[in-house]
C-alpha cells in the first residue's frame, strides 16, 4: 500500500510539472495565475501524502491547512491586482459609467429571466 501512495505522489508531481508548462508559457499573465493555483491546490494533497508516509499526519496537517489558506489568498490577491491594473484610471472611469457597464453577451437579453440559447 505504501508503494501505491508513493507512486500516486510521484505521478501527481509529474502532472504538476506538466501544469508548470502553462505557468511558463503563458500566453497571458492570468493564465500563469491559473496554473499556479492548480499547482498550489495539489501541493496540499502532496503534503498529506508525505505526512502519511512519514507517519506524522497530525503534524503535517497543520502545514497543509496553512498552505491551502495562503494559496487561496495569494490567488485572490494576484487576480485582484491584475484586475485593478487592467481597469481604466479615475478620469476614464467617469466616462465608463455612462457607457454600458454590462458587457454585451450572445443575445443581450432584456430585463426578465431568459437564457441565451445558441
Amino acid at each position: 500500500m505504501e508503494q501505491f501512495l508513493i507512486s500516486i505522489g510521484v505521478a501527481l508531481l509529474l502532472l504538476m510539472l506538466m501544469s508548470l508548462f502553462r505557468v511558463v508559457a503563458g500566453p497571458t499573465v492570468i493564465d500563469r495565475i491559473l496554473g499556479v493555483n492548480v499547482i498550489g491546490i495539489k501541493t496540499v494533497v502532496l503534503i498529506i501524502i508525505v505526512g502519511i508516509l512519514d507517519g506524522r499526519v497530525e503534524m503535517f496537517i497543520d502545514i497543509a491547512l496553512a498552505y491551502a489558506l495562503l494559496n487561496f489568498i495569494t490567488t485572490i490577491a494576484a487576480a485582484r491586482f491584475y484586475q485593478r491594473q487592467s481597469q481604466p484610471a479615475a478620469a476614464d472611469a467617469e466616462e465608463a459609467k455612462t457607457a454600458p457597464s454590462a458587457p454585451p453577451t450572445a443575445e443581450n437579453p432584456p430585463a426578465g429571466k431568459e437564457g441565451s440559447h445558441a
Partner: peptide
C-alpha cells in the same frame, strides 16, 4: 453585477440547462 449574472458556458447545451425552460428560474 448587482443582480445580473454573467456566466461563461462551454457548450450550447450547458447554457440551456442553466437557464431552464421558459421564463421561470432554472
Amino acid at each position: 453585477q448587482d443582480d445580473t449574472f454573467y456566466v461563461h458556458a462551454i457548450t450550447a447545451q450547458s447554457a440551456g440547462d442553466l437557464a431552464g425552460a421558459g421564463d421561470g428560474p432554472g
